[in-house]
Amino acid sequence: MPKVTIDGKTIEVADGTTILQAARMLGKEVAPPAMCFYTNLKTSGGYCRTCLVKVSKGSDKDPRPMPKLVASCRTPIMDGMEVQNNTSPEVIDARKGVVEFLLINHPLDCPVCDQAGECHLQDLSYENGSAKTRTEFERRTFNKIEIGNKIQLHMTRCILCYRCVKVAEQITDGRVHGVINRGDHSEISTYIEEVIDNDFSGNVIDVCPVGALTDKTFRFKSRVWFTKPMSAHRTCDKCSGKVTLWYQGDEVLRTTGRKDQWGEVEEFICNTCRFDKKLTSDWTIEGPTIVDKHSVISANHYEGMIIPNELTLNDIKKLPLLEKNTDGNTEF
């Protein structure tokens, strides 16, 4: 098994493991950020360049350093490889550049964006970006297109990670959207207005790292940090039926796939589970979802709480976190 050292930490990994995967095994202190790579989507990654790292030693066999920074999500480990991520000023500088590039045309409309609070671009910019902007040019706009009554496309927010295209290619049949045009005119589109409608099309919302693809059924209903995630499941003939329900009071505002600590969906879910089952009675509740991210969503929500295996609606109502205050807002 090849051995790799990343920022001074060493781990043995299986053949074919990428630098990014190895870094994630070592923990979030050394894991580079990733905006386009997605574990469950084949051939994803390599585009955004946020996960660039420095390979200071190629391998035991060929110890020469790699001449350029490499995309850690697409570079396999060689035995004896040494990698610098946060310990390399060169990497930090390059990443800062990438963040700046991703932001120069981003509308920064976070106050009205449904993704705010769980947006990877927000986190990336906060952690790796610069506080100042150096661009003064008009930001890119696109002609608006409608892609159906369940999914909202905001092209101006898109960072062209290609994840949604790969979802359509790999887990739905009959892809109708893709990347059209070229260069900085590139856009996610159906070209001629067409509805993206497919049993699994809703997953494009979950994989989108920004607010380019959002859930129309949840649109402007609540800020995500005012909702409470609960793990739940149901028997479904199309998918695993394992989801996260996002509650406000006892109302399910939104359903998503369950995400791991890297923000990636563990199992893709079908549109029936996502859009059509909005009653608690449709679901078996497993308990509050642990959000392992320094986000307001997770902040002190469940401190000291014992998580039962299964909860009934009445149990949920009894939980302090789901009580409504007099304004109708959920109290934490």
Binding site: G174, H177, G178, V179, S189, Y191
Partner: peptide, 26 residues
């Protein structure tokens, strides 16, 4: 669009695959 759909049918590929390509090349 109908021309591109026709080409897609000749090659037995999805129309979007044609749009993606046609819009890439100048």
């Amino acid at each position: 669009a109908p021309t591109m759909d026709y080409v897609a049918s000749l090659l037995n590929i999805l129309p979007i695959e044609v749009y993606e390509v046609a819009s890439f090349y100048s």
